[in-house]
Amino acid sequence: MSGISQDDVAHLAHLARIDIPSDQLGHYAKQLDAILHAVEQISEVAADDVPAMSHPVPMTNVFREDIPGVSLAPGLAVASAPAVEDDRFRVPRILDEE
């Protein structure tokens, strides 16, 4: 299963939007490979008929009533933003629309 290459790291870094300098890719690849090798032992466990557990507490149907709450006071939403214009978050140009 394992065997993580520099290209893999570059691809994953792009998916995760982290600009890893190319001279560090090898370093990360080596470390990740070692970690993956260690965690891979879980594949030894025969667990075909075992249900996956996503939550530690077995609860369901937890809902909130549709009752308005309190929004942030005017201006507070953008107060900590690196760049703001007209109460909106200013961001560099976007290449393509989702």
């Binding site: 308005p68 709450g69 942030l72």
Partner: peptide
């Protein structure tokens, strides 16, 4: 057309001032 958003109590009304119907 719920009164509030899917995961918080902010209003869903159309046409509010920018970033006025937001919370953490």
């Amino acid at each position: 057309g719920t009164k509030t958003k899917m995961f918080c109590g902010c209003s869903t009304e159309f046409g509010g001032e920018p970033n006025s119907q937001v919370c953490p």
